[in-house]
Design a binder for these strands. Structure first.
Lengths: 111, 111
DNA sequence: ACTATATAACACCTTTTGGTTTCATGTCAA
DNA sequence: TTGACATGAAACCAAAAGGTGTTATATAGT
């Protein structure tokens, strides 16, 4: 189902603060472009282009309702980000365990 | 890229695939620039500029050892990414939310 | 059918990004 | 000191990103 022919990947899509705000907004509620652009200090066309990039990354999905096109959040691509991030969990887990080992060895040394 | 007065944030830093590879590499092992650039199909200077961006975001840290500058991964800033991502956990944890949004928007249609 | 609205598509401009080559500086080793 | 090596800095360039306004098209309401 998930097409891998995406022009923009999720990493690049969320790099822009405006697009992160868009995701936050569309997570709250499905909205058409005109209503969305009311929340941003830029033209509707600019917002539309950001939406296009998010759509290319699979992060939002349009739905036509009459003459409107409502956009909604599609959170699934964020799982790729989550998976990427999970690789680095061990680094701050290791730091934690290193501190724990230090404290524990200090205690066991005294004994 | 010439003048980067603003510090790069972690979102922008990880947007580039080369920089993600750099993080992966430096997670394995602390390395100097010349050794790093052997892993990439670009000039040493280009790698150095990517390292600069990662350093601005706090994701890598240089350590001078003689005439070398060894870079190592600094995973802490990734916690900001993890925190940002955690907001969206509810969307894939609560699969009903998509249906709820659909029903709510359908009602506002007056259909 | 006509008019107003929503939005996509197009053309264009400016800034940023990712890359290059060249040069300067600093460090190790004869 | 001389020379080789490691790195950063500067100048430059092509391409992409981010913005603008202006159409074009389809739909809603009258």
């Amino acid at each position: 189902m998930a097409a891998s022919l995406l022009k923009h990947d999720v990493f690049q899509a969320i790099a822009d603060p405006t697009r992160r705000q868009l995701l936050r907004l569309l997570g709250e509620q499905e909205m058409p472009v005109t209503a969305i652009s009311g929340h941003f200090p830029m033209s509707r066309t600019a917002v539309s282009k950001h939406l296009r990039i998010l759509a290319d990354a699979g992060l939002v999905k349009p739905r036509k309702v009459g003459r409107e096109t409502r956009y909604r959040l599609e959170p699934e691509p964020l799982l790729e980000l989550k998976r990427w991030l999970s690789y680095y969990e061990r680094f701050w887990e290791n730091k934690m365990s290193a501190l724990q080992r230090y404290v524990e060895s200090d205690e066991s040394d005294g004994a």
